[in-house]
């Protein structure tokens, strides 16, 4: 459906992508600076911090479904047998 050239798409997105990457870099720096002089991250936040690294690795993958996979990374897992587990009749 999208007839536009990749160069057009990248050119129009470049500055906003650059700005968002900078925000991520600065936020992670802020966390590290706080860690230098303070206590380590709580366990649940350690897990969330690791998720950020996992998400950054997904950005580096080659397939054009990064947004979907990042969404799934930050999602609770779905168990198909949930109705039995919750004792809800079908």
């Amino acid at each position: 459906m999208n007839q536009r050239h990749a160069s057009t798409v990248l050119d129009e997105s470049f500055l906003s992508v650059r700005a968002k990457i900078l925000e991520i870099g600065a936020a992670l720096d802020r966390v590290d600076r706080a860690l230098e002089d303070g206590p380590p991250l709580d366990e649940d936040l350690r897990i969330r911090r690791d998720k950020i690294d996992d998400a950054i690795r997904l950005l580096l993958s080659e397939r054009p479904d990064r947004a979907e996979r990042i969404q799934l990374l930050f999602s609770r897992k779905y168990a198909p047998g949930w109705r039995t587990d919750m004792a809800i009749d079908s």
Binding site: S75, K77, Y78, P80, R83
Partner: peptide
């Protein structure tokens, strides 16, 4: 919303499709 969306949507679709 957020981390609950995927699981909740799948559960919703299960209930509708069943």
């Amino acid at each position: 919303h957020l981390e609950d969306k995927f699981q909740g949507t799948q559960m919703t679709l299960d209930m509708l499709c069943d």
